[in-house]
Design a protein around this nucleic acid. Structure first.
Length: 118
DNA sequence: ATGCTGACTATGT
DNA sequence: TACATAGCCAGCA
């Protein structure tokens, strides 16, 4: 992935608020890279441990934590981090996107409280 | 150039 | 809801 694309991808992910999640495809679109969902995952795998990009808030379109090809423990860490922020998983290990998916606002004036469970 | 791979998705059964 | 398929496209061999 080109350096410029990675930069755009990371800057979008950095906007995802705590307690919310975004999908790979969503990040790609917002970064101006439609149809490049896979690049988002590719860029994340290249992320260095020192960065402050909230990588754990990116999940796949079915609301699940995407399985790593290498069976690394990062997937488990991701779930832990999300639950720590209040993101709930259902019995099938999926996040109800209707409730937790990030809906970016055109006008950054007001902010979305991560509310759930009326 | 060609073919394969992958932290993906939309669609059909 | 769950698989299978077929698009997708930047890297790399």
């Amino acid at each position: 992935v080109s350096a410029v694309s990675r930069t755009r991808i990371y800057s979008v992910i950095a906007r995802v608020p705590k307690g919310r999640v975004a999908t790979y495809g969503q990040i790609a679109r917002l970064a101006g890279l439609p149809n490049h969902a896979r690049l988002v995952g590719y860029a994340l795998s290249a992320l260095d441990d020192e960065s402050r990009v909230p990588w754990h808030r990116v999940v796949n379109a079915s609301g699940r934590i995407s399985p790593r090809s290498d069976e690394s423990p990062m997937a488990g860490v991701q779930r832990f981090l999300l639950e720590s922020e209040g993101v709930r998983f259902d019995a099938g290990g999926r996040i109800p996107l209707r409730r937790f998916q990030w809906r970016p606002r055109r006008f950054p004036s007001s902010r979305p409280p991560p509310r759930f469970r009326a």
